[in-house]
Design a protein around this nucleic acid. Sequence first.
DNA 1: ATAATAATATAGTCTAGACTAACTTTAATT
DNA 2: AATTAAAGTTAGTCTAGACTATATTATTAT
Lengths: 147, 147
Amino acid sequence: MSKAVTAALRGTRAQEDYLEQILTLIEDKGYARVVDIARNLGIAQASVTGMIQRMDTDGLVTYEKYRGVILTQAGEDIARAIVRRHESLAEFFALFGLDEKSIYDDIEGIEHHMSQPILATIQALTGELERQPALLERVKKKMAGSG
Amino acid sequence: MSKAVTAALRGTRAQEDYLEQILTLIEDKGYARVVDIARNLGIAQASVTGMIQRMDTDGLVTYEKYRGVILTQAGEDIARAIVRRHESLAEFFALFGLDEKSIYDDIEGIEHHMSQPILATIQALTGELERQPALLERVKKKMAGSG
DNA sequence: ATAATAATATAGTCTAGACTAACTTTAATT
DNA sequence: AATTAAAGTTAGTCTAGACTATATTATTAT
Ligand SMILES: [Mn+2]
Ligand SMILES: [Mn+2]
Ligand SMILES: [Mn+2]
Ligand SMILES: [Mn+2]
């Protein structure tokens, strides 16, 4: 018996990338500054300010001029869902020796297109494959042929 | 020894979705009409005309007013790459009993974010898992718990 | 306290990609 | 052949999300 969550738990791709960054910054450094969000996303500072203002309007963050940004509950929910998907993908592909750096852009895209059944599949499969080193080796061998 | 292909083999997400549809229509019916592209993508006819004109400028299709649309070599290359990725994803997730309809939107998104290593991994893994029915059953069982 | 530096905000611009409404061309009916 | 219907195009509008240049505020150093 688990409580059903009604919220959408989704934003646009850009919004989700911002939320992911904001959550990560808050957890890593205690606060999220515009300059850091901009640097991490490779986006101009002014663009970040603009987006944060729209996200405040949309109820995803709380923003006060020249003060920091914090997440609303809705924003945090989306952020955590995205981080979970990102980490699940990274863990899954790591099984096959793909290092996160080389597939980072892919993961950044895919994480926005994983409904519940696909997430559950990836996670369950990861769990099983961790106990199948021989199978993993065979997959790696095959991949070498198509590099 | 295989010939290296130099082309980018990528467009924007919208362009890739159009190219995928155009190729599919041409292969299925022999020609691609604006009205069918619009219907299949859920986009207004006028929007399709506009996009096709831009794609002609970009060298992805050849377009003549009131005549049909055909793919350039560059456009066809991108289209085939996308179709291959779409089919690889569908085949992979089918292993776990996910039917294509329920995950169609996800696949439509993910197919645009698969660099070569990820495609090779999915394909190689699919080949291995086809010979592991017991493992597939265990994964399905686990998934049932998180639905 | 003042001056210099860093961070943030505003204003204005641009592009992709969607929309609707109105018009034109092509295809099908009678 | 004339009429009607379907398909396609054009024109104009809108929004998200980026950019640069400039102004403002906050922070740090002197
Ligand atoms: Mn991510
Ligand atoms: Mn992302
Ligand atoms: Mn597809
Ligand atoms: Mn797609």
